[in-house]
């Protein structure tokens, strides 16, 4: 594609709104990372159909699964909160917009961290 920006604008990388490139880029980067993670997770989930408690815990607690599951939930929640932020920005403004965005980010961090602690606890036995 033809790049019509000036060399200075390209170096600054801010665009016309002077903000948002970081958000855009993080959304794409997490999207690319999620392609293999989500395919792995969907297949795993189907294979776990009907599995009992012990089987599920043994699966979550194996080292490779721990790493991939933490990545899936962490990267997934980051991608999700970036996306929901855009939705909130599209349909709300003022105090509602700010409060909802803060709420979405707090919920994402809270659930993400809780899930990571849970996975580590299963893996390292507690």
């Amino acid at each position: 594609m033809v790049d019509r920006r000036t060399p200075l604008a390209r170096a600054r990388g801010l665009g016309s709104a002077k903000a948002g490139l970081g958000h855009w880029w993080a959304q794409r980067l997490t999207a690319v990372a999620l392609i293999p993670l989500v395919v792995w997770f969907a297949i795993s989930l189907v294979m776990l159909s009907g599995a009992d408690y012990a089987t599920v815990r043994a699966w979550i607690g194996s080292p490779l699964v721990m790493v991939l599951l933490i990545l899936t939930i962490g990267v997934g929640l980051h991608h999700a909160q970036l996306g929901v932020q855009v939705v909130v920005e599209d349909y709300t403004d003022g105090a509602w917009r700010l409060s909802l965005i803060v709420l979405v980010k707090f919920i994402a961090v809270l659930f993400g961290l809780s899930a990571i602690v849970a996975i580590l606890r299963i893996g390292f036995g507690g």
Partner: peptide, 24 residues
């Protein structure tokens, strides 16, 4: 795409809840 994105955001919380319950 937007609708499923919002649904999956909620779904991600559900997934987190799943491992939290598995640890509980």
């Amino acid at each position: 795409h937007r609708a499923t994105g919002v649904a999956l955001a909620v779904g991600a919380l559900y997934l987190a809840t799943w491992v939290i319950y598995a640890a509980s």
